[in-house]
Amino acid sequence: MNTTDYLRQQQAEITEHHVYLGLSKLADNDHNRVTLKKIADDELKHYHIWKKITGKDVEPNKSKVRRYISLARIFGLNFSLKLMESGEVNAQALYEEAKILLPEVGNIQSEEEQHELELIGILKDNRLSYVGAIVLGLNDALVELTGTLTGLTFAFGNNQVIGITGLIMGIAAALSMASSGYLASQEDEEVKDINPIIAAVYTGLAYLITVFLLVAPYFIFSNGMVALGVMLVITLLIIGGYNYYISVAKEVSFKKRFLSMASISIGVAAISFVIGFVVKKYFGFDL
Protein backbone atom coordinates (compact mmCIF):
# COMPACT_ATOMS: atom_id res chain seq x y z
CA MET A 1 0.00 0.00 0.00
CA ASN A 2 1.43 3.43 -0.96
CA THR A 3 0.61 7.12 -0.61
CA THR A 4 -1.07 7.17 -4.03
CA ASP A 5 -3.69 4.68 -2.81
CA TYR A 6 -4.30 6.79 0.28
CA LEU A 7 -4.67 9.96 -1.77
CA ARG A 8 -7.09 8.21 -4.11
CA GLN A 9 -9.21 7.13 -1.14
CA GLN A 10 -8.95 10.61 0.36
CA GLN A 11 -10.36 12.05 -2.86
CA ALA A 12 -13.12 9.43 -2.85
CA GLU A 13 -14.13 10.52 0.67
CA ILE A 14 -14.39 14.23 -0.19
CA THR A 15 -16.15 13.40 -3.46
CA GLU A 16 -18.71 11.24 -1.66
CA HIS A 17 -19.19 14.00 0.92
CA HIS A 18 -20.34 16.36 -1.85
CA VAL A 19 -22.41 13.63 -3.53
CA TYR A 20 -24.30 12.69 -0.36
CA LEU A 21 -24.77 16.36 0.49
CA GLY A 22 -26.28 16.93 -2.95
CA LEU A 23 -28.45 13.82 -2.72
CA SER A 24 -29.76 14.91 0.69
CA LYS A 25 -31.26 17.97 -1.01
CA LEU A 26 -33.11 15.67 -3.44
CA ALA A 27 -34.54 13.38 -0.74
CA ASP A 28 -38.33 13.25 -0.64
CA ASN A 29 -38.73 12.99 3.15
CA ASP A 30 -37.05 14.24 6.32
CA HIS A 31 -35.73 10.81 7.40
CA ASN A 32 -33.84 10.27 4.14
CA ARG A 33 -32.62 13.87 4.14
CA VAL A 34 -31.23 13.59 7.67
CA THR A 35 -29.66 10.18 6.98
CA LEU A 36 -27.88 11.37 3.84
CA LYS A 37 -26.71 14.57 5.55
CA LYS A 38 -25.25 12.50 8.42
CA ILE A 39 -23.41 10.24 5.97
CA ALA A 40 -22.10 13.33 4.15
CA ASP A 41 -20.74 14.67 7.45
CA ASP A 42 -19.08 11.31 8.19
CA GLU A 43 -17.43 11.27 4.75
CA LEU A 44 -16.01 14.73 5.45
CA LYS A 45 -14.66 13.44 8.77
CA HIS A 46 -13.07 10.49 6.94
CA TYR A 47 -11.50 12.90 4.46
CA HIS A 48 -9.79 14.78 7.32
CA ILE A 49 -8.49 11.49 8.79
CA TRP A 50 -6.88 10.64 5.46
CA LYS A 51 -5.56 14.22 5.23
CA LYS A 52 -3.71 13.74 8.52
CA ILE A 53 -2.21 10.54 7.11
CA THR A 54 -1.15 12.00 3.73
CA GLY A 55 -0.49 15.57 4.83
CA LYS A 56 -2.10 16.88 1.65
CA ASP A 57 -5.31 18.57 0.49
CA VAL A 58 -7.22 16.89 -2.33
CA GLU A 59 -9.97 18.34 -4.53
CA PRO A 60 -13.20 16.36 -5.06
CA ASN A 61 -13.90 14.76 -8.42
CA LYS A 62 -16.42 17.37 -9.57
CA SER A 63 -17.49 15.49 -12.70
CA LYS A 64 -18.34 12.44 -10.58
CA VAL A 65 -20.34 14.61 -8.16
CA ARG A 66 -22.32 16.11 -11.04
CA ARG A 67 -22.85 12.68 -12.61
CA TYR A 68 -24.26 11.00 -9.51
CA ILE A 69 -26.54 13.93 -8.69
CA SER A 70 -27.78 14.14 -12.30
CA LEU A 71 -28.47 10.39 -12.33
CA ALA A 72 -30.42 10.74 -9.09
CA ARG A 73 -32.53 13.51 -10.63
CA ILE A 74 -33.36 11.34 -13.64
CA PHE A 75 -33.49 7.79 -12.27
CA GLY A 76 -34.00 8.35 -8.53
CA LEU A 77 -31.89 8.05 -5.39
CA ASN A 78 -31.99 4.25 -5.52
CA PHE A 79 -30.12 4.04 -8.84
CA SER A 80 -27.49 6.63 -7.92
CA LEU A 81 -26.81 5.12 -4.48
CA LYS A 82 -26.59 1.57 -5.87
CA LEU A 83 -24.12 2.75 -8.50
CA MET A 84 -22.00 4.35 -5.77
CA GLU A 85 -22.13 1.16 -3.69
CA SER A 86 -20.80 -0.91 -6.58
CA GLY A 87 -17.61 1.19 -6.56
CA GLU A 88 -16.89 0.63 -2.88
CA VAL A 89 -15.65 -2.96 -3.21
CA ASN A 90 -12.08 -1.77 -3.87
CA ALA A 91 -12.29 0.57 -0.87
CA GLN A 92 -13.05 -2.37 1.43
CA ALA A 93 -9.91 -4.13 0.23
CA LEU A 94 -7.88 -0.98 0.94
CA TYR A 95 -9.35 -0.67 4.46
CA GLU A 96 -8.47 -4.28 5.29
CA GLU A 97 -4.85 -3.79 4.30
CA ALA A 98 -4.35 -0.24 5.62
CA LYS A 99 -5.85 -0.75 9.09
CA ILE A 100 -3.01 -3.14 9.98
CA LEU A 101 -0.64 -0.16 10.08
CA LEU A 102 -3.18 2.61 10.63
CA PRO A 103 -5.73 1.76 13.37
CA GLU A 104 -7.81 4.88 12.60
CA VAL A 105 -8.66 3.35 9.20
CA GLY A 106 -10.49 0.60 11.06
CA ASN A 107 -12.85 3.26 12.46
CA ILE A 108 -13.51 4.52 8.95
CA GLN A 109 -14.31 0.99 7.81
CA SER A 110 -16.74 0.47 10.71
CA GLU A 111 -18.56 3.70 9.91
CA GLU A 112 -18.75 2.81 6.21
CA GLU A 113 -20.36 -0.50 7.13
CA GLN A 114 -22.81 1.41 9.32
CA HIS A 115 -23.62 3.61 6.33
CA GLU A 116 -24.63 0.53 4.36
CA LEU A 117 -27.14 -0.38 7.06
CA GLU A 118 -28.49 3.18 7.19
CA LEU A 119 -28.91 3.25 3.42
CA ILE A 120 -31.08 0.11 3.39
CA GLY A 121 -34.04 2.20 4.55
CA ILE A 122 -33.47 4.66 1.70
CA LEU A 123 -32.91 2.13 -1.08
CA LYS A 124 -36.60 1.65 -1.75
CA ASP A 125 -37.66 3.46 -4.89
CA ASN A 126 -41.38 3.32 -5.62
CA ARG A 127 -40.57 3.32 -9.32
CA LEU A 128 -39.08 -0.15 -8.91
CA SER A 129 -42.51 -1.41 -7.81
CA TYR A 130 -43.66 -0.65 -11.34
CA VAL A 131 -40.85 -2.50 -13.13
CA GLY A 132 -43.34 -5.19 -14.18
CA ALA A 133 -45.56 -2.57 -15.79
CA ILE A 134 -42.61 -1.01 -17.62
CA VAL A 135 -41.40 -4.42 -18.82
CA LEU A 136 -44.91 -5.22 -20.06
CA GLY A 137 -44.97 -2.10 -22.23
CA LEU A 138 -41.32 -2.08 -23.25
CA ASN A 139 -40.96 -5.75 -24.12
CA ASP A 140 -44.29 -5.97 -25.92
CA ALA A 141 -43.48 -2.88 -28.00
CA LEU A 142 -40.00 -4.16 -28.87
CA VAL A 143 -41.24 -7.60 -29.91
CA GLU A 144 -44.30 -6.38 -31.83
CA LEU A 145 -42.72 -3.35 -33.50
CA THR A 146 -39.42 -4.97 -34.51
CA GLY A 147 -41.42 -7.85 -35.99
CA THR A 148 -44.01 -5.63 -37.67
CA LEU A 149 -41.53 -3.10 -39.08
CA THR A 150 -39.16 -5.82 -40.32
CA GLY A 151 -42.04 -7.61 -42.07
CA LEU A 152 -43.36 -4.39 -43.60
CA THR A 153 -39.86 -3.39 -44.77
CA PHE A 154 -39.60 -6.53 -46.88
CA ALA A 155 -43.26 -6.51 -47.95
CA PHE A 156 -43.45 -2.85 -48.97
CA GLY A 157 -40.96 -0.49 -50.60
CA ASN A 158 -42.16 2.86 -49.26
CA ASN A 159 -40.63 4.00 -45.97
CA GLN A 160 -43.33 6.63 -45.38
CA VAL A 161 -46.04 3.97 -45.64
CA ILE A 162 -44.09 1.68 -43.32
CA GLY A 163 -43.49 4.46 -40.79
CA ILE A 164 -47.11 5.66 -40.75
CA THR A 165 -48.45 2.10 -40.56
CA GLY A 166 -46.10 1.29 -37.68
CA LEU A 167 -47.00 4.53 -35.89
CA ILE A 168 -50.77 3.97 -36.13
CA MET A 169 -50.47 0.36 -35.04
CA GLY A 170 -48.10 1.33 -32.22
CA ILE A 171 -50.30 4.08 -30.78
CA ALA A 172 -53.36 1.82 -30.87
CA ALA A 173 -51.38 -1.00 -29.22
CA ALA A 174 -50.03 1.39 -26.54
CA LEU A 175 -53.58 2.36 -25.54
CA SER A 176 -54.55 -1.31 -25.51
CA MET A 177 -51.53 -2.27 -23.39
CA ALA A 178 -52.19 0.57 -20.93
CA SER A 179 -55.75 -0.70 -20.51
CA SER A 180 -54.48 -4.25 -20.01
CA GLY A 181 -51.92 -3.02 -17.48
CA TYR A 182 -54.63 -1.21 -15.53
CA LEU A 183 -56.90 -4.27 -15.41
CA ALA A 184 -54.01 -6.61 -14.52
CA SER A 185 -52.93 -4.36 -11.62
CA GLN A 186 -56.51 -4.08 -10.41
CA GLU A 187 -56.88 -7.84 -10.29
CA ASP A 188 -53.55 -8.39 -8.52
CA GLU A 189 -54.69 -8.06 -4.93
CA GLU A 190 -51.39 -9.36 -3.53
CA VAL A 191 -49.49 -6.24 -4.57
CA LYS A 192 -50.70 -3.56 -2.16
CA ASP A 193 -48.33 -0.72 -3.07
CA ILE A 194 -49.13 -0.58 -6.79
CA ASN A 195 -51.61 2.00 -8.04
CA PRO A 196 -53.44 0.56 -11.11
CA ILE A 197 -53.62 3.98 -12.79
CA ILE A 198 -49.88 4.65 -12.35
CA ALA A 199 -49.12 1.10 -13.57
CA ALA A 200 -51.22 1.77 -16.68
CA VAL A 201 -49.40 5.06 -17.31
CA TYR A 202 -45.99 3.37 -17.00
CA THR A 203 -47.05 0.58 -19.37
CA GLY A 204 -48.54 2.96 -21.94
CA LEU A 205 -45.65 5.43 -21.83
CA ALA A 206 -43.02 2.69 -22.10
CA TYR A 207 -44.84 1.32 -25.15
CA LEU A 208 -45.41 4.74 -26.74
CA ILE A 209 -41.83 5.98 -26.31
CA THR A 210 -40.54 2.73 -27.80
CA VAL A 211 -42.90 3.10 -30.77
CA PHE A 212 -41.68 6.63 -31.57
CA LEU A 213 -38.04 5.60 -31.32
CA LEU A 214 -38.45 2.54 -33.55
CA VAL A 215 -40.50 4.18 -36.33
CA ALA A 216 -38.33 7.34 -36.44
CA PRO A 217 -35.72 5.87 -38.85
CA TYR A 218 -38.45 5.28 -41.46
CA PHE A 219 -39.24 9.01 -41.52
CA ILE A 220 -35.55 9.99 -41.55
CA PHE A 221 -34.06 7.60 -44.14
CA SER A 222 -35.39 6.88 -47.64
CA ASN A 223 -33.60 3.54 -47.97
CA GLY A 224 -35.61 0.72 -46.37
CA MET A 225 -32.58 -1.40 -45.47
CA VAL A 226 -30.83 1.53 -43.80
CA ALA A 227 -33.97 2.34 -41.79
CA LEU A 228 -34.29 -1.32 -40.80
CA GLY A 229 -30.66 -1.51 -39.68
CA VAL A 230 -30.94 1.68 -37.62
CA MET A 231 -34.21 0.44 -36.09
CA LEU A 232 -32.56 -2.81 -34.98
CA VAL A 233 -29.62 -0.89 -33.48
CA ILE A 234 -32.07 1.33 -31.57
CA THR A 235 -33.82 -1.83 -30.36
CA LEU A 236 -30.57 -3.18 -28.90
CA LEU A 237 -29.73 0.22 -27.34
CA ILE A 238 -33.15 0.40 -25.64
CA ILE A 239 -32.77 -3.14 -24.33
CA GLY A 240 -29.22 -2.39 -23.15
CA GLY A 241 -30.13 0.89 -21.46
CA TYR A 242 -33.16 -0.51 -19.67
CA ASN A 243 -31.37 -3.63 -18.46
CA TYR A 244 -28.39 -1.61 -17.27
CA TYR A 245 -30.75 0.45 -15.11
CA ILE A 246 -32.43 -2.67 -13.71
CA SER A 247 -29.11 -4.48 -13.16
CA VAL A 248 -27.88 -1.56 -11.02
CA ALA A 249 -31.13 -0.74 -9.21
CA LYS A 250 -32.12 -4.34 -8.43
CA GLU A 251 -28.64 -5.96 -8.42
CA VAL A 252 -29.46 -8.57 -11.06
CA SER A 253 -27.41 -9.94 -13.94
CA PHE A 254 -27.23 -7.50 -16.87
CA LYS A 255 -25.93 -10.08 -19.36
CA LYS A 256 -28.65 -12.65 -18.69
CA ARG A 257 -31.53 -10.16 -18.96
CA PHE A 258 -30.04 -8.40 -21.99
CA LEU A 259 -29.46 -11.60 -23.95
CA SER A 260 -32.94 -12.84 -23.12
CA MET A 261 -34.75 -9.70 -24.32
CA ALA A 262 -32.44 -9.19 -27.30
CA SER A 263 -32.78 -12.77 -28.54
CA ILE A 264 -36.59 -12.59 -28.37
CA SER A 265 -36.78 -9.27 -30.26
CA ILE A 266 -34.21 -10.22 -32.91
CA GLY A 267 -35.73 -13.71 -33.23
CA VAL A 268 -39.18 -12.28 -33.93
CA ALA A 269 -37.63 -9.83 -36.42
CA ALA A 270 -35.97 -12.74 -38.26
CA ILE A 271 -39.25 -14.65 -38.50
CA SER A 272 -41.01 -11.48 -39.71
CA PHE A 273 -38.30 -11.03 -42.33
CA VAL A 274 -39.18 -14.43 -43.79
CA ILE A 275 -42.90 -13.65 -43.70
CA GLY A 276 -42.39 -10.26 -45.36
CA PHE A 277 -40.16 -11.78 -48.04
CA VAL A 278 -42.72 -14.49 -48.82
CA VAL A 279 -45.61 -12.00 -48.91
CA LYS A 280 -43.78 -9.71 -51.32
CA LYS A 281 -42.63 -12.55 -53.56
CA TYR A 282 -45.91 -14.44 -53.84
CA PHE A 283 -48.44 -11.61 -53.43
CA GLY A 284 -46.50 -8.96 -55.29
CA PHE A 285 -47.01 -6.02 -52.91
CA ASP A 286 -44.94 -3.00 -53.87
CA LEU A 287 -46.19 0.20 -52.21
Rank of each mutant, 00 (worst) to 15 (best):
43 E>V: 06
45 K>L: 09
46 H>R: 10
47 Y>I: 11
47 Y>H: 11
47 Y>N: 09
49 I>Y: 01
49 I>D: 08
49 I>N: 06
50 W>P: 09
52 K>Y: 01
52 K>P: 02
53 I>W: 07
54 T>S: 13
55 G>F: 06
55 G>M: 13
56 K>Y: 07
57 D>S: 14
62 K>L: 15
62 K>T: 14
63 S>T: 13
64 K>R: 12
64 K>M: 13
69 I>M: 10
72 A>T: 05
76 G>H: 05
77 L>M: 11
79 F>I: 02
79 F>N: 00
79 F>P: 01
80 S>H: 02
80 S>L: 05
80 S>I: 07
81 L>W: 07
81 L>E: 07
81 L>C: 03
82 K>S: 03
82 K>W: 10
88 E>C: 04
89 V>I: 15
90 N>Y: 08
91 A>N: 14
94 L>E: 07
94 L>P: 03
95 Y>D: 11
95 Y>H: 12
95 Y>S: 09
96 E>R: 15
97 E>N: 12
97 E>S: 13
97 E>G: 01
100 I>G: 00
100 I>W: 00
100 I>S: 05
102 L>C: 02
102 L>R: 12
106 G>I: 12
108 I>F: 05
108 I>G: 03
108 I>L: 12
109 Q>L: 13
110 S>V: 13
111 E>N: 05
112 E>W: 14
114 Q>T: 14
115 H>K: 12
116 E>Q: 13
117 L>N: 12
119 L>T: 08
121 G>W: 11
122 I>Q: 07
123 L>F: 02
124 K>W: 07
125 D>N: 15
127 R>V: 04
127 R>G: 08
130 Y>A: 09
130 Y>S: 08
131 V>M: 09
133 A>S: 15
134 I>E: 05
135 V>D: 12
136 L>K: 10
139 N>F: 04
141 A>R: 01
142 L>T: 00
142 L>R: 04
146 T>E: 00
147 G>A: 08
147 G>W: 01
147 G>T: 02
147 G>N: 05
148 T>H: 03
148 T>N: 04
150 T>E: 06
151 G>M: 14
151 G>N: 05
152 L>V: 02
152 L>Q: 06
152 L>P: 03
156 F>R: 11
158 N>T: 10
159 N>W: 06
159 N>T: 15
160 Q>E: 14
161 V>I: 14
164 I>D: 04
165 T>Y: 04
165 T>Q: 11
